[in-house]
Amino acid sequence: MDTLIIAVPSETPGGLDAAVGMHFGHCDLYTIVEAKNGEIVDVRTLPNVPHQQGGCMAPVNHLARNGVKVLIAGGMGLRPLMGFQQAGVRVVHGAGAPSVGHAIQAFLMDSLPTFSTENTCGGGAQH
């Protein structure tokens, strides 16, 4: 099975013990986890790109360029969600996880739901 690269918006300093960032586009950094056969094989951090007016797609492109295939997110807007889908990045809903490590384990146990348009900002969800 190929290595899967998973990103989680994180509060500084990132890593498995860090708190999950509540909004993917405005977090300082991402914790990047590589997993293989359901096991974590590497953990590192990736700084976010600056957020600017109308620039919702910048972090989408940033993560896609860095090989991310799964994003665990608590909140995001419709535009970046559509962008991730079009870039081939699966987005799952991980709000409420006490830490990045918990969110990753929940994903690896296949217990996180796919992030839908109903979860987006303006789609009825709070973040």
Binding site: Q53, G54, G55, C56, M57, M76, G77, L78, R79, P80, T120, C121, G122, G123
Partner: peptide, 11 residues
């Protein structure tokens, strides 16, 4: 802002 939240409207 409220109506367009999450849509990434440029302006």
């Amino acid at each position: 802002h409220e109506a367009g939240e999450g849509l990434g409207i440029f302006a």
